[in-house]
Amino acid sequence: MEKETIISAINLTKNFGHFTANDNLTFEVKKGEIFGFLGANGAGKTTAIRILCGLSSPTSGEVEVAGFDIYHETEKIKKNIGYMSQKFSLYEDLTISENIKLYAGIYGISRKQRKVKEAELLQKLELEKVKNKLIGDLPLGWKQKLAFSVAIFHDPKIVFLDEPTGGVDPVTRRKFWDLIYEAAHNGITVFVTTHYMDEAEYCDRVSIMNAGKIEALDTPAKLKEKYKATNMDEVFLKIAR
């Protein structure tokens, strides 16, 4: 059975004055897929992510996210997606518990439901004992795991991860990917950007952008075959250089 399409972009174009940041992007992402969105700095990834999250309108093109139209239904899109980046995720001067409460409130989760889910989450991440600690006092690895869990706390259809693993140690980075796999396994679509090329291998499919265009889009195995490369690092260098 063909899997449900959760993101569909047809000729998505975004101009800033005379500069074309996104040039006719056409792609689909399926439900439960881990979709790697790669590209060099300045290739246009952030612009595209902002559009897909309903924060910016394209200049032209047809785009649907979680079944909603990107021009007219941005509020519905925002309710159905989660977002996490390395730079912004949680409030440093609130406790773990307060952060969860805040996000649950924003997404309109009932008090009762929040309590159940919070307990589950704290138990899974083994954070029960430190739930009243300020986020600012936690090690980076914990923060990131928590930020991810909070980003999917409202069971979004899609979660956007913008360089979620920058700077963390190699063990934590891998534990983070365990969470990503688990979320995808549970049907959440994962749309992720990264500069770690080994992480590109963990994606079901990968798109590589260069100068505003999608230059390649396929499974890591097929990309390696096509570009006669032994790993994704080589594929990336061949396309983006």
């Binding site: 690092d233 990336f236 260098l237």
Partner: peptide
């Protein structure tokens, strides 16, 4: 090279 893409890092 933190936050820099693979090509620029190289």
């Amino acid at each position: 090279t933190t936050g820099v893409d693979a090509v620029s890092r190289k």
